[in-house]
């Protein structure tokens, strides 16, 4: 059981790292702000959640799992909110540019 959980944790963490790597690649390669945000908010949250799940499998303790859950919740919340704020600011800026050329 322990060995199974251990390998499951490793697989989850590798998957999470892959998600984060894809997000980094997306931010680097994509052309404009909105598509970058699109990549960043989703892949980032998913990557962190997967890594936290993997770490919880490896740690196998209740308190560690609780704090990992809290981390995931906070990353998801703040990632979504900052993504929204940046996009909103960008759109405001773009429309003000259109109004007063």
């Amino acid at each position: 059981m322990t060995a199974l959980l251990h390998s499951a944790g490793l697989v989850l963490m590798i998957a999470g790292t892959a998600f984060l790597a894809v997000a980094a690649l997306g931010v680097w390669r994509l052309p404009d702000l909105l598509s970058r945000l699109h990549v960043l908010t989703k892949a980032d949250t998913a990557g962190v959640a997967l890594i936290a799940l993997g770490a919880a499998c490896l740690a196998q303790s209740f308190t560690a799992t609780l704090s990992l859950l809290l981390c995931t919740l906070l990353v998801a919340l703040s990632g979504a909110t900052t993504g929204h704020l940046i996009a909103r600011d960008h759109l405001d800026f773009a429309s003000s540019q259109e109004d007063s050329p």
Partner: peptide, 14 residues
Amino acid sequence: GPMMLPFARVVLPL
């Protein structure tokens, strides 16, 4: 912006 208030509502108690 409007998303900040729900965010603060969750984050401040945390």
